[in-house]
């Protein structure tokens, strides 16, 4: 039972990590590329870290919870770096592809 849970978590984590990087490599402009790594990769690594926590706890040397620390840290920092990157891209006026009419974006700074 535990092994199935572990296998599922590891596979889900790896697949999400892969999809996040695929989005980075594949999409058209910077702003859409930003979405893959911030969401999918963060969740993927989170799944892997929880799998690691479950694995080391099941080894019998007491509970191993310090992986939670990296998970929390990543979930707090990923949005911050995404926000800063988007801000930097807007500052540099990077081109946008496939945008709709409503795009009230001006340089404000």
């Amino acid at each position: 039972m535990l092994e199935y849970l572990l296998a599922f978590l590891i596979l889900a984590g790896a697949v999400f990590t892969f999809i996040g990087s695929l989005g980075l490599a594949r999409l058209r402009d910077f702003y859409t590329r930003l979405h893959g790594p911030t969401k999918a990769t963060t969740l993927g690594v989170g799944c892997l870290l929880i799998a690691s926590s479950v694995f080391f706890t099941s080894q019998g040397n007491g509970a191993s919870l310090h992986e939670v620390l990296i998970t929390l840290f990543l979930f707090i920092t990923a949005p911050v770096s995404a926000h800063l990157l988007a801000k930097a891209a807007l500052h540099l006026n990077l081109p946008r592809v496939g945008e709709q009419a409503e795009a009230p974006v001006r340089r404000q700074d």
């Binding site: 999400f16 695929l22 989005g23 859409t32 969401k39 969740l43 946008r96 496939g98 945008e99 709709q100």
Partner: peptide, 25 residues
């Protein structure tokens, strides 16, 4: 977070031409 990831994963795997990105205030 989980739902969003499934949605984003499907968008990434689908055709990039069909995406409708937008800036929203």
């Amino acid at each position: 977070v989980f739902l969003a990831n499934l949605v984003v994963a499907r968008r990434i795997l689908g055709s990039p031409d069909r995406l409708r990105p937008a800036f929203i205030e």
